[in-house]
C-alpha cells in the first residue's frame, strides 16, 4: 500500500473514510443490511459484536477484491466476490467461536448471514473493484464503522428502554418497569422506523431552511 503522496490525495482518502460514518450511513441513509440491523440489536453488546464482525469481513473482502479485481473476468466477478465474502465470514465465525463462545452463541446463525448482507457485496461491486487497495480499505472501514454506529444506536436504545440496562449494567434500579416490547422483534421495526422518521424530519427542515434562504 503506498502512502498518500499529496495533501489533495490525503484529503480524498479522508473523505472516502468519513462518508460512510454519517452522510452515506449504510443503515440510516442507504437502508442496507436490514436483517442483521434488526435481528441482533436487542442489546448493545450484541450490536457491537455484529458491527465489528461485519466491519472485519468488509475490510478483508475489500482489500482482496481491490488487489485482485483486475484478474477477475467481469462475467464471474459476482460469484468470485461471494466466494471471497463467504470465506471471510466462515473465518470470523470460527475465530469468534474459539475466543468468545458466549458472543458466538448469542449471534448464532446471524453471524453466518453476514454473507447475504447486501452492504458488503454492494461495496465490492460499487467501490472496491474499481479503487486502489488503500482507498478500498478506508471506504470499507468507514462503511463498517458507520454500520456499527447505527447498530449500536439501535441496540443501546432498545436495551435501555426494553431492559433498563446498558451493556448489561442495570441503570434505573428495580423501580423501572421495562418496556419489554422494545427488545422483542416488533421493537426492532418500530425503533428503526422512528429513527428514520427523525432523519426525514431533519432533511425536511433543512430543505425548508434552504428554500427560505434562496428567497
Amino acid at each position: 500500500m503506498n502512502a498518500p503522496s499529496s495533501p489533495a490525495e490525503a484529503a480524498r482518502l479522508h473523505a472516502e473514510f468519513v462518508k460512510g460514518l454519517w452522510r452515506e450511513n449504510p443503515v440510516f441513509v442507504q437502508v442496507l443490511g436490514m436483517c442483521p440491523t434488526l435481528a441482533v440489536t436487542n442489546s448493545a453488546i450484541n450490536a457491537l459484536a455484529m458491527g465489528a464482525a461485519t466491519t472485519a469481513v468488509l475490510a478483508c473482502s475489500s482489500l482482496l477484491v481491490s488487489l485482485l479485481g483486475r484478474f477477475i473476468p467481469a462475467q464471474v466477478r459476482i460469484s468470485t466476490y461471494v466466494i471471497v465474502i463467504a470465506t471471510f465470514v466462515t473465518v470470523v465465525d470460527f475465530v469468534l467461536q474459539a475466543i468468545l463462545p458466549d458472543v458466538h452463541k448469542e449471534l448464532g446463525a446471524f453471524l453466518a448471514l453476514i454473507v447475504v448482507n447486501c452492504l458488503i457485496l454492494g461495496r465490492q461491486e460499487a467501490f472496491a473493484s474499481k479503487n486502489p487497495p488503500l482507498a478500498a480499505v478506508l471506504d470499507a472501514l468507514g462503511m463498517g464503522l458507520g454500520f456499527l454506529f447505527a447498530l449500536l444506536c439501535l441496540g443501546a436504545t432498545r436495551e435501555v428502554l426494553g431492559n433498563g440496562s446498558l451493556f448489561g449494567i442495570d441503570l434505573f434500579g428495580p423501580a423501572f418497569e421495562p418496556w419489554v416490547v422494545m427488545v422483542l422483534p416488533p421493537g426492532g421495526f418500530l425503533m428503526l422506523g422512528l429513527i428514520l422518521l427523525l432523519f426525514s424530519w431533519r432533511l425536511q427542515r433543512r430543505a425548508a431552511a434552504a428554500a427560505e434562504e434562496k428567497r
Binding site: 473476468p73 468470485t80 470465506t87
Partner: peptide
C-alpha cells in the same frame, strides 16, 4: 478463475478450521 478462487478459499478455511 472460479476454480482457483474456490481452491484458495478451501485452503484458507481448512487451515483456520
Amino acid at each position: 478463475t472460479l476454480t482457483v478462487a474456490g481452491l484458495l478459499a478451501g485452503l484458507l478455511l481448512a487451515s483456520t478450521y
